[in-house]
Design a binder for these strands. Sequence first.
DNA 1: TTTCGACATGTCACTCATGGAATGTCGTCC
DNA 2: GGACGACATTCCATGAGTGACATGTCGAAA
Lengths: 178, 178
Amino acid sequence: MSLRHAVLGLLAGGPASGYDLLRTFDLSLANVWPATQSQLYGELGKLEKGGLVAVAAEGPRGRKEYAITDAGRDELHHWLTEVEPTQVRRSDMLLRVFFLDRLERDEALAYLRRQAELAAERHERLVELGRTVAQGDDPLSVYGRIAMEWGLRASATQRAWAEWAQEQLAERQPPAAP
Amino acid sequence: MSLRHAVLGLLAGGPASGYDLLRTFDLSLANVWPATQSQLYGELGKLEKGGLVAVAAEGPRGRKEYAITDAGRDELHHWLTEVEPTQVRRSDMLLRVFFLDRLERDEALAYLRRQAELAAERHERLVELGRTVAQGDDPLSVYGRIAMEWGLRASATQRAWAEWAQEQLAERQPPAAP
DNA sequence: TTTCGACATGTCACTCATGGAATGTCGTCC
DNA sequence: GGACGACATTCCATGAGTGACATGTCGAAA
């Protein structure tokens, strides 16, 4: 439901072709809203049919440059200011936690340890990403950094949680004496 | 992809009908993996066809009580110990952040303020939930509390982030003098 | 000049998820 | 004994996401 708004949001920054958008997705939005070719081109077609975007120019290789229309701008504004974000709830990482008692104690601890590791890796990757890109002062970089900060805090939180959970488990069920 | 494992995980704790599972979902797993009737019954059918669960007994009103099979237990164990959780990435809340420069400053601040509010509400709801249920010492309660702790920390983190982001915005673009 | 990589769009088949509706049964309370 | 709420399953339409495949063009370098 939100891909259309992601497209509108990007086109609000200037006209672009499907191909352009695809690269922008990979570069900046991939972490919060990945999209495949088929989805993107399909969505562009639907948006055009709905009058929210229009073909502004045609280039070589069949390139079609899309531009946002006034109707599209209205829709984007409405989505940004009036539609409540749906909180993400599905997490197979947490789902597994519910079933940790189906495992041996060591296996359960290993699982939590692994989650701490993964969170640490994700954190590291974001720090790295922050060093290489998004140093600019342009709006997308500024807000990109704010979004990235979310990722940094989230991964740190997850790591701390996974370590805390290991302690809980260790305290609760001390291993049998040899 | 994980609904099947959620079902297997629950059935590993004892046989149950689709209806039973549905209620358990609503009570305990709803926060990490919601499921609808149609999905659940569909999944049970597929699992039975695949030999991972079997009808253990039939009751009144067409009730079919399903039990996990050895193959199902193997699959569950495999999923718990060897399959890496897919990190959740889609977030329309963060997607909007990228487009905040399309808004007036006040609108952008209002958006972030609202996200802080929502996080605080979610936190409050979890605290409340923690008071009313999950006081037991049974495995599902214990691990349920660990999962809940994740939610508590995540919502606290999100709130702090949204407040930080407001400050960033306020510092960066001081309102024009009157 | 040919060839190769980047540019560029599009389709298909499949699975997952959502939400709603239809259908019927059992037990209990009045 | 009738009405009602809880129990219980199944079907269907729609839309979103995935991944693979198909097709073709342009520019530059070897």
